[in-house]
Computed example of a mutant assay.
Amino acid sequence: MKATEKDIEKNQGMSDAIKAARNALSGGIDYSNGAYFWDGADIKSNYKNHTKVKSGIHITDPAHNVYGISDSGKTKILYKTVKKKVDGHVKTVQEEVGRYSWVYESTAGVGGTIFWRYGRDWVTVTRAKEYR
């Protein structure tokens, strides 16, 4: 994110990413398969502390796993508090909203990059936007 135009030009990976994004946006092949996010080698070197790993990742195809990392998902259940009338009394109860096991799922692995999108279950349960 802090890279300058010169930094991007000097770095083959970053310049390739820019070319691929421009290609996809101009109607060409989308090598990321619809991803909105990506990671490089830092996902392996900083696995335990990586933000996406802590949120939960799922490799959807072994070909995407360019760093040999493992899934980090755990089933999470979201609840909402509601008031219900039971036997003439109002009680506060917890109702399940939904479940998800990871926030990010892989869409492609190209060179040294793993591409991600938000997991469908997470988007549905949290009512999130796919691109934020």
Rank of each mutant, 00 (worst) to 15 (best):
K10M: 09
E130R: 09
E95I: 06
T4V: 07
S55N: 15
P62K: 14
A41D: 11
D61H: 08
D30G: 01
R127C: 08
R127Y: 07
G27C: 05
V123P: 00
G73K: 02
S70I: 13
N65Y: 10
H50Q: 08
M1V: 13
G119F: 00
V97Y: 11
Y100F: 13
G28P: 00
D42E: 12
L78Q: 14
G98E: 06
S72A: 09
K76A: 08
N11F: 05
W122N: 02
H50Y: 14
Y36C: 11
R120S: 12
Y104A: 01
Y67V: 09
K54F: 03
E105A: 05
K129R: 09
N65K: 10
K6W: 04
T4E: 12
A35M: 01
V123I: 15
R127H: 15
F37I: 09
V125H: 02
K91A: 03
T81E: 15
V97S: 05
N46Q: 12
N46D: 15
P62N: 14
T51W: 15
H89Y: 15
F37C: 10
S55C: 04
G98T: 05
K91D: 03
A24H: 00
V82S: 05
Y100N: 00
I59R: 02
A128R: 10
N23I: 09
V90C: 00
A24K: 07
I57Y: 02
N49V: 10
N33D: 05
Y100L: 04
V53F: 03
H50P: 02
G27A: 08
G40K: 04
S45M: 11
K80Q: 14
I18P: 00
T124G: 06
N46E: 14
R120E: 14
V90N: 12
E5L: 14
Y67A: 01
T60C: 14
P62Y: 15
R132I: 11
G40V: 05
N11V: 00
N23W: 05
G111T: 02
E5G: 08
V103R: 00
V97E: 05
D61S: 13
I69L: 06
A20V: 07
T51D: 15
T124C: 06
Q12A: 12
G13V: 13
K52L: 05
I59T: 01
G56E: 03
E5R: 07
D30W: 00
Y104N: 01
A21W: 14
D16G: 01
K76N: 10
K85V: 13
E96C: 07
P62I: 13
T113Y: 02
N49T: 13
G13T: 13
D30T: 01
K80E: 11
A3W: 11
F37K: 06
